[in-house]
């Protein structure tokens, strides 16, 4: 079943055409990688999914509902979560509080004036949040202030914050950027395990081919704002157009 369907999306910044008639379909239950050289428009495309950018033309449909014109928080409430390239977390709060906030957002909606309830008596929220921290292996640090975590742990925390909402679609923007090989492998294992447990459809933007080939079930290659090629990872590997985009396009 089609979960996310992007058709005919164009986006220009002044004279620069960042996206040129992009068509993309993400099926439910798949891990869809979007790869491409620098400046290909990967991040622009992702920002069009989450309401940060509005495409000049074209449609973005999520579960048969248009996402165009919706605000970031409305898109999240519809079931789309996002992991950022540099982890976006609530740095001054404890890990448990960090995960409780998305849990409450999922349960109570975009605004709820619960000014007289005690947060530490809300067993439902605490249990869900703790369970999510256990999933990513951070439960023993639940009272630590998030800013003091290592970068890898911050990313795991951000992942826990997204997963606790059990989204239908999880967008990952270079989840292993700047990580060591060992950390990268840990993240791949974590993402794989999470995929099995929760059956969440994922869209991954990635540079690292190792990550792409370990995770993705489908790959779309983006170059100069257009999808030039789409298919299974092993098919993409040998495609001459992809090699052209990655190597031929650069002026060496």
């Amino acid at each position: 079943m089609e979960l996310l369907k992007v058709s005919g999306v164009n986006k220009a910044f002044g004279g620069l055409k960042a996206l040129n008639d992009v068509n993309l379909t993400v099926n439910e239950g798949t891990v869809h990688a979007i790869i491409g050289p620098n400046g290909a428009g990967k991040s622009t495309l992702l920002n069009c999914f989450v309401g940060r950018l509005i495409p000049d033309t074209g449609t973005v449909m999520f579960a048969d509902k248009s996402l165009i014109g919706l605000k970031a928080h409305q898109i999240n409430q519809a079931g789309v979560s996002r992991v950022f390239q540099t982890p976006e977390i609530f740095g001054e709060l404890s890990l448990l509080q960090n995960v409780m906030i998305p849990t409450m957002a999922k349960r109570d909606g975009e605004f709820a004036l619960h000014a007289f309830k005690r947060l530490d008596k809300d067993a439902e929220i605490i249990d869900t949040a703790l369970h999510s921290l256990e999933d990513v292996g951070l439960a023993d640090k639940k009272d630590v202030i998030a800013n003091s975590l290592s970068r890898g742990d911050k990313r795991r925390l951000e992942l826990a914050m997204c997963l606790v909402q059990s989204p239908r679609l999880l967008l990952l923007d270079e989840p292993t950027a700047g990580m060591s090989r060992a950390d990268t492998n840990n993240t791949i294992d974590l993402l794989k395990r999470i995929g099995e447990d929760h059956n969440i459809t994922k869209v991954v933007i990635e540079h690292d081919m190792h990550v792409v080939f370990s995770l993705a079930t489908t790959v779309s290659v983006l170059a100069q704002g257009t999808v030039i090629c789409e298919g299974k990872p092993q098919d993409i590997k040998g495609d001459p157009r992809v090699q052209e985009a990655y190597l031929g396009g650069a002026h060496l």
Binding site: V50, H73, E92, L93, A105, E110
Partner: peptide, 15 residues
């Protein structure tokens, strides 16, 4: 407190 710490994350958390 979340507003003070990170409004961007808050938006992407559905709040």
């Amino acid at each position: 407190r979340a507003v003070k710490t990170n409004q961007n994350r808050m938006n992407y958390t559905g709040l």
